[in-house]
Amino acid sequence: MSSASSVEVRPAWTMAAWSLWRREVVRFLRQRSRIVGALGTPIVFWLLIGSGLRESFAAGGSGGGADSINYLEYFFPGTMVMIVLFTAIFATISVIEDRREGFLQAVVASPAPRSAIVVGKVLGSTTLAFGQAMLFLLLAIPTGLPLGLASFFAVAGVVVLVSLGLSALGLLIAWPMDSTQGFHAVMNLCLMPMWLLSGALFPASGASPWVAWVMALNPLTYGLAALRRALYPGGGGATESVPSMGVSLVVTLVFGLIMVALASRVVHRRG
């Protein structure tokens, strides 16, 4: 091979994105500890928190509509959103080290379009989150979760949307950082409260007014509401007090698009 044979390099957007996506998935499947953690953690969280808060929840608020259902059931959509959030965090936390002294150095130095890098990474994380959330959903069917086929597909769609937004948000935060410690700080300060105040653990109706306000401003509230409504299309399941399906889907979609756009900008600017 001589340098004279060098080809005109025209990096294709889809190939770069596809290759990055595939790497994310292959890498996940080759790490057994990640698979075990990904499936085990949500189940443990769901059972521990769900069972632990069961009595307090039942004894608590009146009105909200949520007390008519068992807390394990109430907490179920919240657990699915937690899976998505944790996956997005895991997928993006590696970005920090990878970009400075690992795999992503070569990606950034390549002519691959910056937006393809973002989309490949975000879709990879979304795929992992989707796979785990849906598996969790299937595992829950034997526990008596009433789930129709239409409902199943609606849930799948919502999970993809929520996951896109959270993965892009994670990338947006992680890309400019140079230490994983910094990311942990942001995670505890922003991402976890985002989940806590999304209606995952308690409904806005029973919270103090300022918390209810923060919850109304939290984009994840709408993702969770969409998920709740997709799981219970006929009402019930604490759907009475959450935003409508239309509003929830629009907010979630717009949030996702804005996050992807911002992440592309950050990656483009900071190489």
């Binding site: 080809v7 190939m15 770069a16 080759r30 002294e101 690992g102 070569a106 130095a109 002519p111 691959a112």
Partner: peptide, 27 residues
């Protein structure tokens, strides 16, 4: 470009690493 710290993915095979890299360059 060759970096001081490895930019290969240890979880991928040698050929998979090359494949991935080639695709980033449009091959």
């Amino acid at each position: 470009v060759v970096f001081q710290n490895p930019s290969v993915d240890g979880k991928l095979s040698v050929l998979e690493n090359l494949h991935h890299h080639g695709m980033l360059y449009g091959l």
